[in-house]
């Protein structure tokens, strides 16, 4: 009998679970197919310059989406990221224009973004507000605050463009590669480690999978929630700095509907909106899929009206495929 069990086990170990493989690698396969398709239709796509351009375009959405991954893993959502981006961008730009040292201005922007995220976290953890409602409210509040703060005008200033450091954030090159790509890579690495290699990451998954069980196993669920929204705000602020630097100005309506692209990237990457399941690698792929779609359709001269429709359809297909691979 012992013998028999052993052979069964060996068989089990050898077995290859196709569905599981597709479920894990699906987004990556989709990206590869998409890249091949676009390259065939428009060979210019694969040029190094275009690819670098694509990555730079992707960086802003990717950075926001990395933070959003944590939020969605807990079963939450952060609609306020676009507004946080605008407000932190405006404040940073104003400080720079006023001649404040760029290091301090950048840190102030980042601190503000974290603080706004922290407020979201407080509302959700202690105010027991549903994440959708809480961040819907703060989305309009932060946006309104941006308009009040800027009087509705873009902030540009000679002094702002004097700062090499600030300029470098969105427009600099390092070793021939646009600097935002480095920012994206560093943020990815840090958040990857945080999610997959630290206790904080484990607790994030636990909280998203079953809040009750996580709490009883000693997870400070409220604390973790607050930190996660703080991270999301922080990421929005980093994105805000890249964008402001890139445009050399802070627009009061900057980042409008960026939350949608970020959420789309997370979902395309296979993270479940119900929480508890997903990986940050998937989000990177999701952001690249969206970037490739945008870039490819531009190269093909498809009108931006159609582009929106195509993007929506791709999201629906992704969700349907995800359903399939999760089915028994």
């Amino acid at each position: 009998m012992q013998e028999q069990t052993k052979s069964v086990e060996a068989e089990k170990a050898k077995g290859f679970d196709f569905k599981k493989f597709v479920g894990k690698m699906g987004p990556l396969l989709a990206l590869i197919v998409l890249v091949i398709l676009v390259t065939v239709l428009s060979p210019g796509f694969i040029q190094p310059n275009n690819l670098l351009n694509l990555l730079r375009q992707v960086s802003i959405n990717a950075v926001i989406a990395f933070g959003m991954t944590f939020v969605i893993l807990t079963g939450g959502i952060d609609l306020s990221v676009g507004s946080i981006l605008a407000l932190t961008g405006a404040v940073t730009a104003t400080l720079l224009s006023a001649g404040i040292s760029p290091v301090i201005a950048l840190l102030a922007g980042i601190a503000l973004g974290s603080l706004l995220g922290f407020v979201n976290g407080l509302l959700i953890a202690y105010g027991k507000a549903a994440p959708f409602i809480a961040t819907l409210a703060t989305m309009t509040i932060f946006r309104g605050a941006t308009y009040v703060f800027t009087n509705g005008n873009p902030i540009t200033g000679a002094k702002m463009n004097d700062s090499f450091l600030f300029q470098f954030m969105g427009r600099g090159y390092l070793l021939g590669i646009p600097f935002p790509i480095f920012i994206m890579a560093i943020v990815y690495l840090v958040l990857y480690l945080l999610l997959h290699k630290t206790t904080f990451g484990r607790k994030t998954y636990a909280l998203g999978g079953n809040e009750n069980a996580a709490f009883i196993a000693g997870v400070k669920t409220k604390m973790v929630t607050i930190w996660i929204y703080t991270i999301s705000g922080l990421m929005a602020a980093i994105a805000g700095i890249i964008l402001t630097s890139r445009l050399s100005s802070a627009q009061p309506d900057a980042g409008t509907s960026y939350e949608m692209d970020a959420i789309a990237a997370v979902v395309l990457g296979g993270t479940s909106l119900a929480g508890g399941k997903g990986r940050i690698f998937g989000t990177l792929i999701g952001a690249l899929i969206i970037g490739t779609l945008n870039n490819g359709m531009n190269l093909l001269g498809i009108s931006s009206f159609y582009q929106q429709i195509v993007k929506g359809i791709v999201i629906i297909i992704a969700v349907l495929l995800d359903r399939k691979s999760n089915d028994k």
Binding site: T199, R202, K203, Y205, A206, G209, N210, N212, A213, A214, I216, A217, G218, V219, G276, K277
Partner: peptide, 22 residues
């Protein structure tokens, strides 16, 4: 409802209360 995180691996479930020790 209270004991397990069904979507997590066995190892993550088992290690959760002791995770700070690792």
């Amino acid at each position: 409802d209270e004991g397990l995180i069904l979507a997590d691996s066995l190892r993550d479930n088992i290690a959760l209360p002791s995770i700070n020790g690792f």
